[in-house]
Computed example of a mutant assay.
Amino acid sequence: MSSPQSPSRDSRRGNESDDDYYVPRTPRRTPMACIFCRGRKLKCDGRTTCANCQKRNLACTYVPVSAQP
């Protein structure tokens, strides 16, 4: 009597080419940090009101780096 084969690594061998082209996922960068996050060197999530400003009840404003004095 032969037992049915369970899906093991043998059934996945046809997809070996997927392993050859593995590219590690890099997190996307926020194009610009708000003034508070930039000053404190925190990770800004780039939302209209970022999480750091929302947590502290601050006005979240985005100003390009070249426009700062």
Rank of each mutant, 00 (worst) to 15 (best):
P64M: 04
F36P: 01
R40V: 01
L58P: 06
N15W: 06
D45N: 15
Q5N: 05
T49H: 02
R12F: 14
L58W: 10
T30M: 00
N15H: 13
C37P: 03
R29D: 14
D45V: 06
S3V: 10
K55V: 01
R29A: 12
D18Y: 10
N52S: 06
D10V: 02
L58Y: 12
Q68I: 07
D10S: 13
T30G: 01
C44I: 07
R28M: 06
R28F: 07
R12G: 11
T49Y: 02
S3A: 07
Y21A: 12
S17C: 00
T30N: 13
Y21W: 13
K41G: 00
A59L: 08
T48K: 15
Y62D: 00
C60I: 10
C44V: 02
P7N: 08
N52Y: 05
Y62E: 04
I35G: 00
R56Q: 15
P24K: 10
S3T: 08
A33E: 03
R12M: 09
N15C: 03
P69T: 08
C44G: 03
L58Q: 10
P64R: 11
Q5P: 07
S8Y: 00
A51P: 00
D45K: 00
Y21E: 15
R25T: 12
R56N: 11
D19E: 13
R40F: 01
S2T: 08
S66G: 00
A51V: 11
S11L: 08
T48M: 10
K55L: 09
P27I: 05
D18C: 04
A59R: 11
D20K: 05
K41H: 05
Y62K: 03
P64T: 07
D10W: 01
A51E: 02
I35S: 10
S11E: 13
T49M: 01
Y22V: 14
I35D: 13
A33N: 08
T48N: 00
S3K: 13
R12C: 04
P27F: 09
E16F: 10
R12V: 06
Y22D: 15
Y62C: 09
R13F: 05
R47V: 05
G14S: 06
D19C: 04
M1G: 14
N52H: 15
N15E: 11
P64K: 11
K41N: 08
M1H: 03
K43V: 04
C37V: 09
R38C: 07
S8W: 01
K41R: 14
D10M: 00
C44Q: 06
Q5Y: 04
A59K: 14
S6E: 12
G46V: 01
P64I: 02
D45Q: 00
R38K: 11
